[in-house]
Design a protein around this nucleic acid. Structure first.
Lengths: 185, 185
DNA sequence: CTTGCTTGTATCTGTTAGAAATATCTGGCA
DNA sequence: TGCCAGATATTTCTAACAGATACAAGCAAG
């Protein structure tokens, strides 16, 4: 049982915030959880149907025709807690940047420096984004019971971005000692 | 074309270090690239056959019966450079820890603190491992042309572990203010 | 000589990402 | 009114993938 329990967890979690349509679900997951979670949207509808059959969500006519909102049921909440309680399944690591750097001699120092620059810029972008979001949400939601937890996930993003920037700077400095040029034979 | 180019990249990369059997390939990928890359081993044989057909690797009789070593060819090296040069395909984020913390109110403060403790311990473990590895390899390979690049990937692991530890400590402190107990209704 | 471990090769099953295909709805405007 | 653009909503498909497993030697130790 518990087919694609990962998707179920995200779907039930999102519905625990508020009832919504499948479409809104997909937007919410992308926009709200997007920094640390991605969902295969092609799985959302099947998962929703499965959850409905198991009685974990209830469908109710939505505002518009052909749209139905999904509401989490009591058993759905129980299921969510159950899912959240099981140990996090570790996602297989596949860091393309690290792989490229590892074979950096083949790729050449110049390209490696480019990659590091890009990674640094991306981390910088994320950092300002997280900091802005943190400030905005602190003001808007600072006194809701969810806030301390949401804040924790944002702080993780901030810490990681900063460490990526520091690492990129350090590595750029280290690699600047190397002669530039094309891949060595 | 370019079926399973991610796997091809890792396979060709490993073979660029030295020729080896499919079995050794699988061990090497797990042991050497394991910190930032994982390969679906069921893909290695098909990928190897595809690469052989395309002329990117050459098979030659290995040390023992029923074993064949694979050697990367010139076109294989070119293909590797081509693959390394294309932009890193980003792996979909699926951080189970963050998802659980985000819905921390549902899970309850106690469990969240547990999760943070576990994450901290895991990061601590990785940190000492990386530091030991760095010291060992620095001594063994410190003067090979690959070392600066390999070192860079190890330093990334060290930076990230440290930032995870700092974040966990900060978050633990922040959540300690919250009342313990079971999930709120 | 047999038991169990390592090396080595190969395949199978179910899951998933990501995109594309397909409707349907809403409001604006001619 | 009829038509269009763009947002909303639902479904389906395919290649890639993870992870397990099956199988066959060889090899070491008891």
């Amino acid at each position: 049982m518990a087919r694609s329990s990962q998707t179920q967890m995200a779907v039930l979690g999102a519905l625990s915030i508020e009832p919504m349509t499948a479409y809104a679900l997909r937007e919410t997951i992308r926009d709200v959880l997007g920094h640390f979670w991605s969902e295969s949207f092609g799985q959302i509808y099947p998962t929703l149907h499965a959850l409905e059959e198991e009685g974990h969500v209830r469908r109710r006519g939505g505002a518009r025709a052909r749209s139905s909102e999904f509401v989490i049921t009591e058993s759905g909440t129980a299921r969510l807690i159950e899912l959240l309680s099981e140990p996090a399944r570790k996602v297989p690591a596949r860091d393309g940047l690290m792989l490229r750097l590892f074979f950096g001699r083949t790729l050449g120092p110049d390209r490696c420096r480019d990659l590091l620059q890009q990674a640094r810029a991306a981390a910088e972008g994320r950092l300002t984004e997280y900091e802005a979001l943190l400030a905005r949400l602190e003001a808007e939601e600072g006194d809701t019971p969810d806030w301390p937890y949401i804040r924790t996930t944002l702080r993780a993003g901030i810490h990681h971005s900063r460490s990526t920037i520091a690492w990129a700077d350090e590595s750029l400095a280290a690699l600047s000692a190397l002669p530039g040029g094309s891949p060595s034979p």
